[in-house]
Amino acid sequence: MAAQRRWHTIIPRDQLSNPPEGIPVTWLKPRKKLSKIYVHPPPRSMPKKCPDPVGVVTASQLATLDSSGARARLFDKENTEGVRVGDVLHVRMREGEPVSGVCLNIRRRGVETAILLRNQLTRVGVEVWVKVFSPLVQSVEIVQRRVRRARRARLYYMRQPKHDMGSVEGLVRTYLRQRAVLGSGGKGAAEMLGKKGKGKGKKK
């Protein structure tokens, strides 16, 4: 099986019985035939059984954090009714103040998926990364959709004074008031708001 190595074939075997002149006899000794070594079969391969362990850990996390899969759908790239960059979002936290702002970036990394929200507080630009699958995030609501689809994946140009959207506080207040009047939505309805937000965007 193993390839014949160079030092095995100094002299071809068929010449062994017919030694050439002037070569020591010891060279011509027939090589001892190597014994066979049994190669044991390997146990079952774990990488074949589970080629993506990080995906397995992520899936088990999402099963507890996002059992209905609604939030994953909200940030799915294929979902046309989901969140896109340029949308104004309102994020309620389990405790503390809600966070709102225009979404500059969506970082899709499984359970680590996060959004970057930009807002202005007391005329100072503020940016916050929100981990969307964190148990501390109660709901993510779309306040206003971007009128046209953004042609960039990351809207960092909105940090420039020329493009800065300013404070989204007014937009959020109007949205919350309207929602209270309509009486729909409310807590736990975050995932419905993908559709609802779109309707609003059209209206405006």
Binding site: D52, P53, V54, V57, T58, Q61, T64, L65, R94, R109, G110, V111, E112, K131, F133, S134, P135, L136
Partner: peptide, 15 residues
């Protein structure tokens, strides 16, 4: 080593 990710505690929310 296959990569990094995060684990959340559903109770405390600690990542």
């Amino acid at each position: 080593k296959k990569g990094m990710t995060a684990i959340y505690d559903p109770e405390t929310g600690v990542r």
